[in-house]
Amino acid sequence: MIIEASLPESGRLRSAARPARRAPLRLRIAPLAPGLKRLLLSWPFPLAILALWALAAHYEWIAPQVLPAPGVVAHTFADLARSGELFDNLKISLLRVLAGFAAGCAGGLVLGVAMGLSPVFKDYVYPLFRAVSQVPVLGWLPLLMLLLGIDETLKVVLIAKAALVPIAMNTYKGLENVPAQYVEVAKVFGLTRRQLLWKVVFPAALAPIWNGIRYGLTHAWLALVVVELLASSEGLGFMIVYGRQLFQLDLVLAAVVMVGIVGYLMDKGLALIETRLLRWRRVGF
């Protein structure tokens, strides 16, 4: 939305100021109708799939061990939720992600800021950082399993690594790409170094840094599921493996749905914060 001042740009622009205030209002009302339309259009497809699934299960086109009926899955989900099993495992998974992500986020920000602000530090650290990040989390897994065993430390370290790399990289790139023009503005107005950082540099780099944090959280969640699938006796990932071993696909699907819900909520939460944080930008993602 661009507020056009009426032409010619006269000394007093009070009249032009009014649309500026009215514009957000219009924005709030306008999308209602398309939103409703979108809502109506978006349901038939998943419902059709669900119906097909239910039919397939009902007429046993597919063996129930291979694809249990949606009703069964929902029932299992409800059972798991009622018994608390689902939420106990969810809690364990979330705590792991939280610990790993917090560590990775802190480390990534520190590393990224240091590399972004100091070319000398970057020269020393960046090549090693690049080399380490070339090996994916799953490449590190066997090594870390040997070194750390398969208990909590392994999970936290692995998740932290998964989060650290994108956060550090985006922070570094974001800071490095802060336009020199803005730094010059700060110089002209005699900003101190602290003001330069907090008023100019960090806001300018906020979008890429935030993007890194989003990727970091996504990766952390991905790493959690893998490590729980491979080496865990609790958590959502474990529920999936356990169900698979017992050939209880309803259990597997219920846990997968939960994994999806958490991933969805995390992404939406971050997107919400982002619109707040980066309100000054013309376009969202």
Binding site: R130, S133, Q134, V135, P136, V137, L138, A162, V165, P166, M169, N170, K173, G174, N177, V178, P179, Q181, A204, A205, A207, P208, N211, G212, Y215, H219, L222, A223, F285
Partner: peptide
């Protein structure tokens, strides 16, 4: 021109972050 950094996409440099 002044290029304001938009979001840095997950791209080559961030590769194998996973």
């Amino acid at each position: 021109e002044v290029q304001f950094p938009r979001d840095v996409r997950l791209s080559p440099n961030i590769s194998f972050a996973l």
